[in-house]
Amino acid sequence: MADVLRVCAFYPDLMNIYADRGNLQLLQRRAQWRGLGFELSGVGLGDELDPDAHDLLYIGGGQDRDQALCAEDMATNKRAALHHAAEDGKVIFAVCGGYQLLGHAYELDGTKLPGVGLVDLETVREDGPRLIGNVAIELELDGTRHVLAGFENHGGRTRLGAHTRPLGRVLKGHGNDGRSGFEGVRGGPRDTVVGTYLHGPLLPKNAWFADWLTATALHRAVSELKPLDDRLEDAAHAAARRAAGI
């Protein structure tokens, strides 16, 4: 097994609004407890992204104003490297504001933020209320059914292209647009691009998913990861599911 999980956080000082740090902390601690190495780096505005230097790229959420700055920068300076990374099977994991930038564009208040076009989707800010609340979705990974539980808070409505696969099916909550019954996206040339509105933050409430991301980023099966004592993680997952009402 590769010794080191190399994670790159996009715009860590701007795109961190919903405790994105918690997601990174899960990846880091769990790698360390397993005796894997862990390297965390960040890329900021204007920085160049080296697609070969990382196993997992993390894009969090930000305030509207910061998200707009990052959207322009990502489309201008990082688009090609992101596509290169996706083709190499790197995991690209985007949450909320980051998720909205994975597709073609995010239209809000008469302006259009460019996306990076990794997956076929589009996001539009509608006049309706923000979609806020506890949420649980059901998904199938490697033939097994799982539940992800978290919290969503987004004004944008995301619509997937006809041949684009969601990450999961909404059990409770709003999901991509409050109507389709779908949540998130999973796609890209090697199926390693994952976007979701679930934060709260997501990985502490779903440690099993942190492990799936880790294993996928290292091109391993989850079963190859050393088991950890997850009693507190399981309790937090159960509490998040209860909060969502399942």
Partner: peptide, 9 residues
């Protein structure tokens, strides 16, 4: 706040 994510910040 229904969203407890702040404890991670």
């Amino acid at each position: 706040g229904r969203d407890v994510s702040w404890v991670w910040d």
